[in-house]
Design a protein around this nucleic acid. Structure first.
Lengths: 215, 215, 215, 215
DNA sequence: AATGAATGAGTCTTCATTCAT
DNA sequence: CATGAATGAAGACTCATTCAT
């Protein structure tokens, strides 16, 4: 929030941000404990608001879950698209630039620890939220791999890669750069920058051994 | 149980198998709904026993969870080791034999849908079962990748692969053959045999592009 | 049981004594934990019989309680009457003989730890066992103070005491010799013989200071 | 609460008194039925609050029991000390003044019907509340008999009694004035004022026959 | 007679939700 | 908006009792 905005809302800056505080607290609680094991009170306290405010602003627990999923989906989707925009279409140093991109992607995908846990939650509770589940399937994480495939397609057309199936290359790229990340390593363990770069380097290296253009 | 055994034990096969029936039902329920959302009654009904029998045979919910984890760990670990024993050390057709092995591995790893979901559960509830978590970390799934690495090391020494880090090769191999499997695709979706073979073929293909020995 | 009886019942000596074993175990459990907190299983195990035998021999929990109360009432009443029969009507040494009698009485009244606890139980559950409560009130412990009063009346008539109300003397005698006994001192604490004799001596001493015949 | 206070606090006297209402209801229920046979719901209804309020204000059943014991201990101890302060150190009419004091003491000791029953409960459940049991043993009822003994000691020094062991006199005094009170006479039977005076008169009479100073 | 299991009831405890202040 | 309380509905766990073996 800018200073001007802060000045414009003298003492009641919250009304808008309270909703976000609730959503953040709820997200944390949901991914940490699961949807059924969280108490509304705990969320309210963590968000610094009263229980009633949760009900006033958002509604009951199911509505809260829906709101959290929508919030996270929107945010992480935008983040992912923004990251894809940094794909090196015409790299100077293919190995180095692709590794940098992979590090950026992982750095975001790890903020996706939340998104990932939410996905599992959503799958688990899919029978209770069929519409949300559908929406998420269509506009959710899967929808973005085609965008990544397009990136690799451009890179191949530019002569940097030797691939026939850009979609497959995208999937294997993702698999390789994620290979060393401990996906089940317990809650809230954000890997260090070095770990990210290490696994990205190794993954890109293998990727290029398989798909790098050969003279 | 063979037909002969079935005939030999007309009506009293249960006493021993009731425990197993409970564990199986509990495993299904836990991985489907999470540990907190399952009712003991539902498990008992699913297992075809009475609620009391659950308490008599195993104990309360926590003990039930521990028993399930131990049971699954033991079984899946044995299965994995048995599968690793079929690794093609001296393959006739490298691509084909490695793909067959990958299919076998995936066929077991998918029975490991249970194991995988249990892992997530265990991570989530690790603070409530610290000892179990520790044991599982030491003797659990991670301990077997070194065994796979040893397989690849043998393969490389036999001249079939061009690798310097067998452990890395093992990790990337696993990542590639799992790349197309929808890990979060909802509960209990066992991929078809064709899907398994397809993803295995693609994964092994890329793997060999990267690490196959070149003449 | 005599040897002949033992021979007559070769391997099934219990059928008769099992009932008593159950009643004893039930009594212990009831006075220790209260009627509601006891499990039939615990009683059965303590009695060394199976749960079914309890139901076969006696019936459900209420019938078990009734049987225990009747058993204890019968036994302790007989014991008390037998003890009263040893009252020193014509003592050689009034102080000493009365003290000996008090010690005997206390020794029985303390075995009556059970009886006492049962009384409290019966009072507490009186609304559930109205007939038993009535019977116990009529034939129970209260019915015996008149007998003790008669003893003191005889002693007074023989010139050893200076009392006008034998019943009052009996009550005060009981109060005094019980004064130092820790009635609430926790479960199953049987006072030592010395403690019994000490409190009896002090109580009888005060009693005789008040009611001893003066020349 | 005085009329003035009642007027001054029109409708919101509760917040503080709800806790007390719960404790009172719980005390009644515990001493009536025992700790295991009482339902939290019954206590809540009797206290005029909701079940949740019990849990919010105090906690689970064990904490409720602890709170009740502490409350009763504190109150009855204060009451007893206040009553002891009215002991007639220099009585005009020894028999009459001592009887009046005994009546006051009994009137309080009967509020001790609660305390007494609680003692038994505490003894029975002592293994589950070891610390509470210890505390109660140290600061509980026993600690006050020395105070009564000091009263009798003063009375003797002033020439009204002929005793050598003030502590013994105190214990026998208590035993005698309690002799006719039906301690096990069922629940919540508060003796009439006449019964109190009668038993006090008889007890003090015997006490003075034994220990009254003789000219 | 003893064992293991089944059934149904009951209790404790927590939670989501709403209402009054 | 926050606080505290009330309500109703769960679910875990225990128990008494009965059956079948």
């Amino acid at each position: 929030m800018s200073q001007i905005e802060a000045l414009a809302t003298p003492s009641v800056t919250r009304p808008a941000s309270k909703r976000q505080a609730i959503l953040d607290a709820a997200k944390r609680a949901f991914v940490r404990d699961g949807i059924g094991a969280v108490g509304i009170d705990a969320i309210a306290i963590d968000a610094g608001v009263s229980r009633q405010t949760v009900y006033n602003q958002i509604g009951d627990k199911d509505q809260l879950f829906v709101a959290v999923v929508e919030d996270v989906t929107t945010r992480s989707s935008a983040l992912l698209m923004a990251t894809l925009a940094t794909f090196p279409d015409r790299p100077g140093d293919l190995q180095a630039d692709l590794t940098d991109f992979a590090v950026r992607l992982l750095g975001r995908c790890m903020c996706d620890i939340d998104g990932r846990a939410l996905s599992l939650l959503l799958v688990r509770e899919s029978h209770r939220f069929p519409e949300l589940f559908e929406t998420w399937h269509q506009y959710g994480p899967g929808k973005d791999w085609p965008a990544l495939a397009a990136c690799f397609d451009r890179l191949a057309r530019n002569g940097y890669l030797d691939i026939t199936d850009a979609s497959l290359a995208a999937r294997h790229f993702m698999a390789l750069i994620n290979a060393d990340l401990p996906t089940d390593q317990g809650p809230c363990v954000r890997p260090s920058e070095e770990a990210l770069r290490s696994t990205a380097t190794l993954g890109v290296s293998t990727f290029l051994r398989a798909f790098g253009a050969r003279p």
